[in-house]
Amino acid sequence: MTVTESLLSYALAAGILTLTPGLDTALVLRTAASQGSKKALLSAFGISTGCLIWGAMVALGLGAVLAASEMAFTLLKWTGAAYLAWLGLQMLLKPRSEMNMAASETSGKVLRIGNSPFIRGLFGNVLNPKVGVFYVSFLPQFVATGYPVGPYIFGLAAMHAVIGTLWSITMISATRPLSRWLRRPAVVRTLDRLTGTIFLAFAVRLAMTKR
């Protein structure tokens, strides 16, 4: 895979993933509605920083392991493909009909780290192991041929953080209409099914990847 193919396909996948409503979306929208745009932007920066931290941890550990072991590469490939396929099937067969806006409030009560929107966004992301598992499963298949795995994976994580921040700014700029749109059952179901289909496609692609 060339760098151009890698970045274009990853940008498409990461973009659709970012558009799918989840905990991060709920946190940004809730903060914008209750505390204003500036604090919502701080939450978005906290979330993006969390992505960079996860990206660095995955890049450092995963890059070394994949470079050293053919067995580790094969195990990770099939584990990642199975995980992505499971996520895709869940989204296709059991799409949500609503976005859980209360999730961000619950996570804030559990964390009790402080009132800073940046800290809430940061720790809400860093303390979510699903982000790390997803990065381990998802990012390796987009590494361009001939490039070192670790730095490239961190670059992809940074790209995801940028895409997420841009989407958060868009949501903050149009909090009310986007919030209403993202809460529509038909929109939530459609985005879940679209994301599920893409996850299944990438699961097959990952399973067929050769070192």
Rank of each mutant, 00 (worst) to 15 (best):
S48H: 06
Y10C: 03
S137Y: 03
F45E: 06
Y135A: 11
F134A: 06
L127G: 01
W54D: 03
K77A: 09
S43R: 04
R120C: 04
L75V: 15
M71C: 02
A40S: 05
A33E: 11
I47A: 07
M71N: 06
W78F: 15
N100A: 14
V126C: 07
N125K: 04
G88H: 04
V65R: 03
V110S: 07
L42C: 05
N115A: 15
W78H: 13
Y83N: 01
F118K: 02
I119F: 12
L66V: 07
S107G: 01
A102P: 00
F118E: 03
G88S: 03
A82W: 02
S97L: 13
I113C: 06
K39W: 11
A44P: 01
F73G: 01
K38S: 14
L27C: 08
V110E: 09
L29T: 02
L27A: 14
L75F: 14
T74S: 12
L27D: 03
A103T: 04
V58C: 07
A81V: 09
L122W: 05
L111Q: 11
L41A: 15
T79P: 00
L139M: 13
P95E: 04
M57G: 09
G15V: 10
L52K: 02
G63L: 06
A103K: 07
L8I: 14
G88Y: 05
A103M: 12
S43G: 09
V136D: 00
L42M: 14
L42S: 10
G61C: 08
V110R: 14
G50N: 06
G124E: 07
A11C: 11
A72T: 07
I47H: 03
M91C: 03
A67T: 10
L127Y: 06
R120T: 08
A33S: 14
E98K: 14
T74P: 00
L89Y: 10
T49N: 03
N128S: 08
V58R: 01
F118I: 07
G108A: 09
M57L: 15
P21I: 09
L93D: 00
K94A: 10
T106W: 12
W54V: 05
P95Y: 05
S116I: 09
W86V: 09
I113N: 00
L122N: 01
D24I: 07
A56Y: 12
G121F: 14
P21M: 08
G88I: 06
G22D: 04
A33P: 00
G46C: 10
L66P: 00
M57D: 02
T25N: 06
L111E: 02
A26N: 02
G63Y: 03
M57Q: 02
S97C: 04
S48F: 11
L42W: 12
